[in-house]
Design a protein around this nucleic acid. Structure first.
Lengths: 130, 130
DNA sequence: GCTATTCCTTACTACGATAGTAATGTCAAG
DNA sequence: CTTGACATTACTATCGTAGTAAGGAATAGC
C-alpha cells in the first residue's frame, strides 16, 4: 500500500504520515525499489489510532506514550488512565479559562448599547485594564 | 521612556512591543539619536489596552480593529459590540468542542479499571476509532 | 581611562501541528 | 510517447511568544 492509499484509509494526510515518521512517532516505513513508502494494514491501524487520539486533543508527546502502551501487551491500564485523566484535568483548566474570558466579554457586551454613539464599556474596560 | 521601561509599565515585553511595531499594530516609535525607541504615557496606555485585549483572547487582527475604534472618537459602539460578540461566539464554539472531548475522555477513564491489568477501554476506543 | 553591568539594537531560531509550494521522479493507461 | 496521477524531498507559512547571538551605548565604580 502506498502512502496515498494509507492516507485515505487512515484519515491521516500523507503529509502528516511523513511528518510523524520524521519525528519518530511511527517507525520508518519500508521502501520499494523506487523509494515509495509501503504500508500494511497494521500500520493503518496505528495511524487510525493516532488520528483518533489527535481528534481527542492529545499532544504528540502523549500520543507517543499511548501508542507504546497500546502496543505493549504487558502494559498496565493504570498508566493509560493516568494520561487520560491528566488530559481531562488540562481540558478542565482550559475550559475554565475560556469560560471566564467569555463571561467577562459577554458581560461587557451586554452593557454596550451597540448603537451609533461612541460610549462603549468594552473599550473602557480594555483601556482601564479590567 | 525607553523600551524596557515601557515594557515594565505596560506589561508587554520589549520583544512584543518591537513585534507589534513590526507588524503595524502600533506605529513606529520615535527614536533618540542613538536609535533607541522612545515612548510616552499615551503609548503605555495603548500597550496596556493591547495587553488587556490579548488577555481576553482577542486575535491581533481583532485588536487592530479595536485599537482603531478606541482611538476614533467618532466610532460607533455597535462595531465594538459586534467584534466582542463574534469573539464570544467563537469562544462558545471552542468551549463546546473541548467539553465534548472532555466528556468522552472522562467517560472512558471512568470505565478503565486503572489497575495493573492491561484491559483498558481508553485504548480500545482509540483503536476502534470512537 | 578601564571595566563591569545593564540596556538597547537587529537578525535569526524555536515552538506545535498542519498545510502549501516547488522541483523532480515514477508508474500505468491510452 | 504523452498524459496524469502519484511519489519523493526540501523549503516556506501559519500564530504569538520566547530565546539566542553579536554588537553598540549608557552608566557606575575603581
Amino acid at each position: 500500500m502506498n502512502i496515498g492509499q494509507a492516507a485515505r484509509n487512515s484519515g491521516v494526510s500523507a503529509k502528516m504520515i511523513r511528518y510523524y515518521e520524521r519525528i519518530g512517532l511511527i517507525p520508518e516505513a519500508r521502501r520499494t525499489a523506487n523509494g515509495y513508502r509501503v504500508y500494511a494494514d497494521a500500520d493503518i491501524h496505528t495511524l487510525k489510532f493516532i488520528r483518533r487520539a489527535r481528534d481527542l486533543g492529545f499532544s504528540i508527546e502523549q500520543i507517543d506514550q499511548l501508542v507504546q502502551l497500546w502496543q505493549n501487551q504487558q502494559r498496565a491500564s493504570a498508566e493509560v488512565k493516568q494520561i487520560a485523566l491528566q488530559h481531562v484535568s488540562a481540558l478542565d483548566h482550559k475550559i475554565e479559562q475560556l469560560r471566564t474570558i467569555r463571561e467577562t466579554l459577554s458581560h461587557l457586551a451586554q452593557h454596550c448599547q451597540g448603537n451609533a454613539r461612541p460610549d462603549c464599556p468594552i473599550l473602557e474596560d480594555l483601556a482601564r485594564g479590567g
